[in-house]
Nucleic acid binder design. Structure first.
Lengths: 218, 218
DNA sequence: GTCTATAGCTTGATAGAC
DNA sequence: GTCTATCAAGCTATAGAC
């Protein structure tokens, strides 16, 4: 039993190191050697625990996606239970989508920050964005879009998907905490100010959804 | 004179090849050899025309940023000339920010698509996003934010900067054309449908700006 | 300005001892 | 399971002929 525990711990240390380095420098910007050096283990162990560098990357993506998707689904289902007859507001549904991220960051900032930085890069990558985001997140996203459809029955499918797409861009960039808004605003705003984000993002995006839903059809 | 022309042509071919490959696979995912092979020239020529791989990358970024910034400034100034006394609407200002991208894509799709894919990756990169986007785009962005401030005098500085930040995420992801919305929507929406984007993005984002500007202050 | 050739290093991945 | 040692390939960058 002790062996199995240690095995899992080593595996996790490798995944943690890979997550952080991939998040900062991208898949191609990091070598297996650098990952194992940060994990404090020998290079050959990477290939004992994982099939290849690419397999290691996939496991990094998958590990936290499962946790995040489960929390988001739980938040949405709790919201729907509170509205057995009517539909929740757009703000509430978007809140169920974003609140889990804020809570995970509040609990363990560094660890989840690395993951969200990684997701932001993948989402914007022309090579991997379409395939990987679809694989890891779209089943859950479809579930959220269903909820949004019920709350905006007059909204066309196209408007709904484009609205979600704009949301996705704003969300992933925001949680990447690149520091750009700090520079642009001369210090007035800070990338890491999760309270400022929570106060603004759902309202901003919900207004966008409504604007497209209410827009007169051509 | 002929020599100077050929020199410039070779330089441009190298920049074109670098732009396309960096856009698809990122800075670290591409070798100078691959770039020069695509450009149809010898590896050593890369180091004749550019100081290093990183210098080549910087020149790729700079070349089109200058064109794009100039067109955006022209669009904003033309808009302001049409409103000598009153302020333009938020939609019009956002339109002046996004229309140049659509026009450049309409004229020369492939070339500018590569550049926008590159920008999307840089913007979302935790390593480079803050620094490079600031360097290449923030002077112009500050000019746009000034115009938005005039159109939304009741809006706080913080709300303005955060609103622009959400805009930036939505915009760069959209023009990256990753194909994700094609997958998510089951083909209902297409990443490359610039008409659909032009019909929706300014309205979506303008509504977001107004929602934050009108939000009661705590 | 464009080539050949190569220095000096790092890469992903594996074989085999213990 | 964890090490040492290593391979073949690819990398950035430069020196020097023409």
């Amino acid at each position: 039993m002790q062996k199995a525990v240690q095995r899992q711990q080593t595996r996790d240390r490798i995944l943690d190191a890979a997550e952080e380095l991939f998040a900062h420098r991208g898949y191609e910007g990091v070598s297996v050697r650098q990952i194992m050096s940060q994990a404090g283990a020998d290079v050959s162990l990477a290939y004992y625990h994982f099939k290849s560098k690419r397999d290691l990357f996939d496991q990094v993506m998958l590990r936290k996606a499962e946790t995040l998707n489960a929390l988001r689904l739980k938040a949405l289902e709790a919201l729907e239970r509170r509205h057995p007859d009517d539909a929740p507001t757009i703000e509430e549904i978007i809140g169920a989508f974003t609140k889990p991220l804020l809570e995970l960051l509040a609990d363990n900032h560094e660890e989840w920050q690395h993951y969200f930085q990684l997701i932001a890069q993948i989402n914007s990558s022309s090579e991997w964005g379409g395939e990987l985001m679809t694989r890891y997140f779209d089943p859950l996203v479809s579930r959220f879009i269903e909820a949004l459809r019920k709350a905006l029955p007059e909204c066309s499918n196209e408007d709904l998907y484009w609205s979600y797409h704009f949301l996705s861009g704003a969300l992933t960039l925001t949680f990447a905490e690149t520091g750009r808004i700090d520079n642009l605003s001369g210090g007035v705003c800070r990338s890491s100010d999760m309270r400022a984000i929570n106060d603004r993002m759902p309202a901003f995006l919900a207004a966008g959804f409504r604007a497209l839903a209410d827009k007169p059809r051509d």
